[in-house]
Nucleic acid binder design. Sequence first.
DNA 1: CGCGGGCACACAAGATTATTGCGCGAAAGT
DNA 2: ACTTTCGCGCAATAATCTTGTGTGCCCGCG
Lengths: 154, 154
Amino acid sequence: MPANLDDTDHRLLELLQHDSGRTLAALGELVGLSPSAVQRRIDRYRANGLLLREIAVLDPSPVLLAVCLVTLDQESPETHTRFREWVLAAPEVQQFYNVSGEHDYVVVLATTDMRHHRETAERVIKNAPHLRRYSTMFVLDPVRTTLTVPTRGN
Amino acid sequence: MPANLDDTDHRLLELLQHDSGRTLAALGELVGLSPSAVQRRIDRYRANGLLLREIAVLDPSPVLLAVCLVTLDQESPETHTRFREWVLAAPEVQQFYNVSGEHDYVVVLATTDMRHHRETAERVIKNAPHLRRYSTMFVLDPVRTTLTVPTRGN
DNA sequence: CGCGGGCACACAAGATTATTGCGCGAAAGT
DNA sequence: ACTTTCGCGCAATAATCTTGTGTGCCCGCG
């Protein structure tokens, strides 16, 4: 997170994280800059690696999401590397976090139905190298699904 | 998920979920359509509720993500409604899922550092109505963070 | 079977937006 | 003080989006 973001930067990043489809002119109206100044700031966010990409968000409600808590059978860089490569090869892996605590990873699988989930969970997780155990929580309702992060720090 | 998506729709939605910054002409090149045909399809996805919005994705690595597993003290529509409203009021709540199994909710908090996390977790979760217990897993490495969903179903 | 309607397409024209260069002022550095 | 750097708005140009039109294809109906 670059240390030199001013208040306008924070507001722009907030707006962009919620809706990146606005025109530069509309954004400029909201933060008090001209369209070209807005664009230059956005270019800077991209150039310094802060803004990674823009994505279209589809309605998650027809999809079967499953949050899987995964524990590996041993702790070493090699086991983690192999496990990650295995899991990352699957496009159904929507999210994948290495976490602290009694589990090693949280994996969110996005599939079209229960049959697809079972096939996916077996291929991606159950058959993964170095798996010790895993548990699955099915998402009954995706109440909020965003990727927003705070930009204001110390 | 609309039942009448053809192969070109699936490919477009896949491309858009990964990168919504391409021009209509670039997308059309990739799927074999003119720019205006691409646009009409995208308009249809928006009109039928499949495409919700476009967002900018920031680099999550400077941020402290915490995956919280939450269990409520009783099971009723009222407790769930009150809990949800409480949690949804917090902008630090990046993701919020109602799940099956021994926990009721998975909540992903996005904060700038540990102090911010502690303050947030106390306000948003510990002080939430109807909380029975919760546990937290800190994200050591956000290996993959997307919101992509599959569009091909039965 | 032919016909009409609906649908999706490409193309083209016009509208809108993005991009870029320029001059200016403010802030920082010497 | 002067110089340099940086970010700005403005304006011109280029690129992209939007929309209307004509065409072809498909389907259902008489």
